[in-house]
């Protein structure tokens, strides 16, 4: 779909409350309508993020998720309703988003992000939201966005807490600058053991959406070089300064990760998401 060059009267009315905002205006709205955002994972983070991106008129929304809606998802994954249980998440989400805003072209990928498909999918997008759960996915997104030069917003949630970081690869501190590599597999308990408050997922997902919108419009200060951490139980927010790490295995001057390891794509858990990290314990993080 080609983004319209002229805002229709209906569009002006639909987006009037944000067109009014300094830094957006008609020009900003047109930018949004021409923008493409990929939401990887349409769950606790991705569902609320996608809702706000669609409502704001982001022209193309890519939704990627291989899962089907489960009853236990509904506590936080607000795009999926009770009758959707058992349906593919991307289908359930796309239906709601198209109803919310027909201006938005929703593209669905009922698939997992893998080293062998990441580059091709990311290529068509301006900004990526990491709404994934597993560390394999999070590190893969960080690596693929680095190699593809795509800005992205990471978020993590746990119990009553969350964190978020926006990354412009090669310019600002990346996910691997902070977390060099995934923890050992055995060290990671499952989500069902830990739990999360649905509102925390919503909060962080909406923060990601706000970061994407700001990045697309070019407005304000992004969560770059600072990690937002919040504790909803105590309702406190802090930002922790993070720098580009001269020893970062991905974006440092002497990277040990030089390309996505597509040879590992056949592995069932895709744990070795990039060459180097899994094979060389140079970071002492094994």
């Amino acid at each position: 779909m080609t983004a319209p060059l002229v805002l229709s009267n209906e569009m002006i009315e639909r987006y009037s409350r944000q067109i009014l905002l300094p830094g957006i205006g008609g020009a900003g709205q047109k930018k949004l309508l021409r923008s493409r955002v990929l939401v990887v994972g349409v769950g606790g983070l991705g569902a609320p993020a996608a809702l706000y991106l669609a409502a704001a008129g982001v022209g193309t929304l890519g939704l990627m998720d291989a899962d089907e809606v489960d009853l236990s998802n509904l506590q936080r994954q607000v795009l999926h309703f009770t009758p959707d249980v058992g349906r593919p998440k991307v289908e359930s989400a796309a239906e709601k988003l198209r109803e919310l805003n027909p201006d938005v072209q929703v593209v669905t990928y009922p698939d997992r992000l893998r080293p062998d498909n990441a580059a091709g999918i990311l290529e068509g997008y301006d900004f990526v939201l990491d709404g994934t759960d597993s560390f394999a996915s999070k590190f893969l997104i960080a690596d693929a966005c680095h190699f593809g030069g795509k800005p992205y917003c990471h978020a993590g949630i746990l119990r009553f807490e969350g964190q978020a970081l926006t990354v412009f690869p090669g310019e600002t501190a990346c996910y691997r600058c902070v977390f060099h590599e995934p923890p050992p597999v055995g060290a990671v308990p499952t989500c069902s053991e830990a739990g999360v408050l649905g509102a925390v997922a919503g909060l962080l997902g909406v923060i990601q959406a706000a970061e994407a919108l700001k990045a697309l419009i070019g407005a304000g200060d992004l969560l770059t070089n600072r990690l937002l951490v919040c504790d909803v139980l105590r309702m406190g927010f802090r930002t922790v300064r993070v720098r580009r790490n001269p020893r970062c295995p991905l974006c440092g001057p002497e990277p040990t990760i030089t390309h996505l390891d597509t040879a590992e794509a056949g592995r069932p858990n895709g744990a070795a998401c990039a060459v180097g990290a899994a094979k060389r314990d140079v970071h002492g993080l094994a």
């Binding site: 349409v42 769950g43 606790g44 983070l45 899962d67 759960d133 807490e161």
Partner: peptide, 9 residues
């Protein structure tokens, strides 16, 4: 922290 879609990749 992980915690988003359960099994995206």
């Amino acid at each position: 922290m992980g915690g988003g879609a359960d099994r995206t990749a």
